[in-house]
Write a protein that binds this DNA or RNA. Structure first.
Length: 491
DNA sequence: CGTCTCACG
DNA sequence: ACGTACGTGAGACGT
């Protein structure tokens, strides 16, 4: 199969390619070309999270490529996907190419130190674990671990899985009130996870030539329209735990005189929900400088905002998150550690105050049933073939996807648009700053210090203006000497 | 190679 | 009575 075919369409010369970014990487396409049509990306948009539907025609023959182009071009137009294809995904492919080529600098010495520290902690934990368990065993083996916990120590089984008894975090946390072993296991797990997945693995991926990490951002993989990252995955670098955070210190600017600048959307999915559902109260929650979760708690529990306590705010926050995933009372109950009835009551109160949110979510499920797919604000589709399945589990799963996909997908559309816009501005303003990473709602740049101010302003403006919603999109910008120690840049 | 677990948004 | 919160990628284990 040829990876590149030139054709004439309406007098214009068009380069039909399969996976432009890969072709540029392997040098088969040497530079940006004005009229490129990537059938790989077109297929991604058209198949809407259903796998590759039109590819057989592509693989069949080179002649099929012209035919494929005609079909895809027509379908993109019919499905109103031309904006996403021509103005977002195609230009984004070049932005991602540049970003991957630029790479991210890693301070390997920082990780070497961490590795040593981790080693001794793991050794200590192993010693205690074996002593309490009464025998050495492989802590990384769920099978051996469950023998120790549930047979030798006779701890109660919290959750069963296909292969026996679950020993996951939720289970071990529950068991830790009854025995000292589970808490130690949790600590051991955290250490060995961080060590094997990040501390020891990242340095091996540093490119010998550039001394940087060059991840690949997959533009046509995620079913909702998000990007994903591999080799390494830069989108799951630890941040939640204190020890994990120290790994971020190893992500550093290209050189002295530069800093990392990070800009992230605040609560973008909730803001999108407010816009899509057109719910007056949720829109109010998103306006001003207020705290969305506090506002929500104030409504739900019917108290003024200054009387919202931590528990109330926490509950509201969890519901706000859960709503985006299509969560039910059972899961909320588990999450908040309250009874199912209390959880039901919370959800009831939530929808009473945000009535149009419920209408919107029900509407999305209905739309999926009628059309077989849901869409983002920009028309990206997600097909949900199980939405009318007789198997309740599969059907309900599809319903949750119908709720989540428009929000997660619209957020993905928006940050992709922002990336293209920011990238154009960098060129136009002749800036030396470089886009180096994206983490779903965050963009990270390497910035010479004398460009910090202008970049903070430029990035914030472009990201906030990427789409005009009926509520503001808020972006906060931070900068610093590594990916952990960053301070807010006011603009 | 499937399963489990867990890192992130 | 059932299962029960979306989307990813990666490492370790064990068949």
């Amino acid at each position: 199969m040829k990876s590149r075919v030139e054709i004439k369409d309406e007098g214009k010369s068009i380069d039909i390619v399969y996976d432009l970014k890969s072709l540029r990487k392997s040098g088969q396409v040497s530079e940006k070309h004005k009229n490129v049509f990537d059938v790989f990306l077109a297929d991604y948009l058209l198949s809407g999270g259903q796998g590759q539907y039109y590819m057989p025609a592509l693989r069949a023959s080179d002649e099929g490529m012209r035919e494929l182009y005609d079909i895809q071009k027509r379908l993109l137009k019919e499905q109103k996907l031309d904006y996403l294809f021509y103005d977002v995904e195609m230009p984004l492919s070049d932005v991602l190419f540049e970003m991957e080529a630029s790479g991210v600098k890693l301070d390997v010495d920082v990780l070497k130190e961490l590795s040593k520290e981790c080693d001794s902690k793991i050794a200590e934990l192993e010693k205690s674990l074996y002593k309490i368990a009464g025998t050495p065993f492989n802590v990384n083996s769920p099978k051996q671990l469950s023998e120790i916990l549930f047979e030798r120590l006779k701890l109660p089984v919290v959750k069963k899985i296909k292969t026996g008894y679950s020993t996951n975090e939720e289970v071990l946390t529950k068991l830790s009130s009854q025995h000292p072993l589970p808490a130690l296991i949790l600590e051991y797990r955290q250490m060995s996870k961080l060590k094997s997945t990040y501390i020891d693995a990242l340095p091996l991926l540093v490119d010998a030539k550039t001394q940087r990490l060059h991840a690949t951002f997959n533009q046509a993989g995620a079913e909702t329209g998000r990007l994903s990252s591999n080799n390494p995955n830069l989108q799951n670098i630890p941040v939640r735990t204190e020890f994990g955070q120290r790994i971020r210190k190893a992500f550093v600017p290209y050189s002295k005189g530069h800093e990392l600048l990070s800009a992230d959307y605040s609560q973008i999915e909730l803001r999108i929900l407010a816009h899509l559902a057109n719910d007056d109260e949720l829109k109010n929650a998103c306006r001003g400088d207020g705290d969305i979760h506090r506002y929500t708690a104030s409504l739900m529990f019917d108290v003024p905002e200054n009387k919202v306590d931590d528990k109330m705010r926490y509950a509201a926050k969890r519901i706000n998150f859960g709503i985006v995933y299509g969560m039910g009372a059972f899961s909320l109950a588990k999450d908040l550690d309250v009874s199912i009835n209390e959880a039901k009551d919370f959800i009831e109160k939530y929808f009473l105050r945000y009535p149009k949110v419920r209408q919107f979510l029900d509407g999305e499920i209905q739309k999926a049933r009628d059309l077989g797919y849901v869409t983002t604000l920009f028309g990206r589709r997600r097909y949900l073939p199980d939405i009318n399945n007789r198997n309740m589990g599969l059907r309900q799963f599809a319903e949750r996807q119908a709720i989540n996909a428009p929000m997660q997908g619209t957020a993905a559309d928006i940050i992709k648009i922002a990336m293209v816009k920011v990238s154009k501005r960098l060129i136009k303003e002749k800036l030396s700053s470089t886009m180096i990473m994206t983490v779903h709602d965050e963009l990270v740049f390497d910035v010479p210090k004398d460009e910090l101010k202008i970049m903070a302003l430029l990035v914030q403006q472009e990201m906030e203006a990427a789409m005009d919603l009926s509520v503001p999109m808020k972006v906060s910008v931070k900068a610093g000497n590594n990916w952990l120690e960053m301070e807010k840049v006011h603009s």
